[in-house]
Design a protein around this nucleic acid. Structure first.
Lengths: 335, 335
DNA sequence: TTTCTCTATGTCACCGGTGACAGACAACGG
DNA sequence: CCGTTGTCTGTCACCGGTGACATAGAGAAA
């Protein structure tokens, strides 16, 4: 890879002049411009972005830190962030934090050390105060889950409202024993969805049965097992609220295997083919692309206008898409 | 953000000594080490990775360029690359190329300009010769599709063999009119899968009917439309080979809507819930994680041992997972 | 003609960490 | 007491592009 000075030498000019050509500076004669452009082409010169941005102290890169990029939800979200960033010529550095809270700080520091101008992250740990010192030079936008012990922008879905709506929807279809299937309360969104579920039961005057709450559905296998356990209770649930798309994808095959497609189901989070299943799955439409777009847009807004006053917390609505899985065996129609 | 010299000043030492502490250099007295560590903690010092790697000319970053990170296949692949890279302390820069071949070079140059040590990319254009000048300083591994007009490592699936197996599988279940649903021949994998499909028909002594080949399934809507068109032919196909998971996800709801779940189906590429559908979908298991792992492993192997001689082309087998959607209405059992 | 402006190009320091190299001092063997 | 070796710390240049500033010639204005 050649450097700017090599190009300069070949064109018989100074490095600065090459820099001027690269930046379409007005004050370059046609003759010189042509010679430099030829030299650039001949050497296949690609400017060293590191050097440029190193000088200015800040790189045109934003970091994205999510639990897992493989997760379709975060993949779609990241993809949208990247779209917005690319439109502005900003690169995107991606890191998977994993689910271990202890690893969050290391993963985020790896990004900060690269002098990212902005950071979009889904917090996993219970405390993000370690990010405070960085806030004067790096804009941080939290996604999916609100941050703790730090003031920053966040873009979250309406977990509480969505869970409430989902549960209420099942209750309206005549279900009285509604189960909750989730991964773990350590994840803030799950905790809030459980809260919404409980609130809906309370609003309907139904006594919550702790035995109907399964918080072990971390993997597909665990989800399936949690389902089997719930269905083999003496008084099994007639409907389930699945607290995210992954648990839904885990329990649906198990439901089918058990021949219990009569069990009502609402999934927090849409997923491919939800409409093609029998019965089609009613979902709370938690749109990852819109979270990504909103977060990236906010990030750049902060970068462009550091002094503008904006509401810290953006809560995206999560509409319910009724498809049919909400009614019980002899249930009434969805509406 | 503080610099190394600021830390040095606070600790009353030179910048170089701070550097030594950061690198656990043997020749630092316990006293000095402690003072420096205190200063680092007090200032919340995070070393500037840019500066360090800028000096050495190479950054501990690898680039990943795929058509779209939102695509679950590439998301899973990228996730696995990131896992392997993270285990080595190497960061991952991700770029979506999109489907426009003209954009490929710009997207890749954006990564190269950041001095990535390695590049994992799924080519979209018909010519990658523009990458030749970079090869002496950047290791390139192509994924999913082989490169053109350039010699480099590639990790691809056995498109030809997989498509052949899928088609043959349908033929063995008594189907004689097997349709092909794909996006576009501009994508190399689709072209090779069509080739495999045709070869399987030829091996079975069946005259290929060009009318059964639909190459318009770029989006879910287009896939659905392609399916409807195929089924309304005077002599419609009794089975379909869907050339990738996305087209499958597009045509399955349409199949269900048309009440034609009797139509045989094999999908190139597994997808969530394929087993939970009615009937469960037989697939060619194209494992994105293993592509990612293999590519990343090869990349680091090249970086660690630049002179080792290795086979350029790695073809991953794609096993067929028979689930039931392959048989026709009154068909025999799957094998 | 002088002065000023505009154009076109060059020089140089600097960003922040680090490799090469240079001391300085202590300990130790002869 | 000197030479040698080992330990600890500092100085300085450098990576590559760019901002600040200088300079030089051309033409215009005074």
């Amino acid at each position: 890879m050649s450097t700017m000075r090599q190009v300069a030498e070949r064109a018989g000019v100074s490095a600065k002049t090459v820099s001027r050509v690269m930046h379409d500076d007005r004050y370059v004669s046609a003759d010189v411009r042509q010679r430099v452009e030829r030299a650039i082409a001949e050497l296949g010169y690609v400017p060293n972005v590191l050097a440029r941005t190193f000088r200015s102290g800040r790189d045109a890169v934003i970091g994205v830190a999510v639990p897992s990029i493989s997760d379709p939800f975060f993949a779609a979200l990241t993809g949208e962030v990247e779209r917005v960033a690319r439109a502005r010529g900003v690169a995107v550095l991606v890191t998977s934090i994993g689910t271990d809270p202890a690893h969050e700080q290391a993963a985020v520091h790896a990004l900060l050390g690269r002098q990212v101008t902005g950071l979009i992250m889904a917090p996993v740990a219970a405390d993000q105060s370690y990010l405070r010192p960085c806030q004067d030079r790096t804009v941080i936008v939290f996604i999916d889950r609100p941050p703790a012990r730090i003031v920053a922008d966040s873009v979250v879905e309406d977990d509480l409202g969505g869970a409430h709506a989902a549960t209420t929807h099942l209750l309206r279809h005549g279900h009285r024993r509604v189960g909750f299937v989730g991964d773990t309360l350590a994840i803030a969104t799950t905790a809030r969805r459980l809260e919404g579920y409980r609130a809906a039961l309370a609003d309907a005057g139904i006594d919550p049965d702790p035995g109907l709450v399964a918080l072990t559905a971390a993997s597909d296998e665990d989800s399936a097992k949690a389902l089997v356990d719930l269905l083999s209770l003496p008084e099994p649930p007639t409907a389930l609220f699945s607290s995210n798309a992954r648990t839904s994808i885990g329990i649906i095959p198990a439901l089918q295997a058990a021949g219990r497609t009569d069990v009502g189901l609402v999934s927090f989070g849409d997923f491919p083919l939800a409409a093609a299943l029998q019965p089609p799955v009613t979902v709370i439409d938690q749109d990852p692309a819109s979270v990504g777009r909103t977060a990236a847009t906010r990030l750049f807004e902060r970068l462009d206008h550091p002094n503008r006053r904006l509401k810290r917390r953006i809560v995206l609505p999560v509409p319910l898409i009724s498809r049919g899985s909400c009614r019980g065996r002899p249930g009434p129609d969805c509406g």
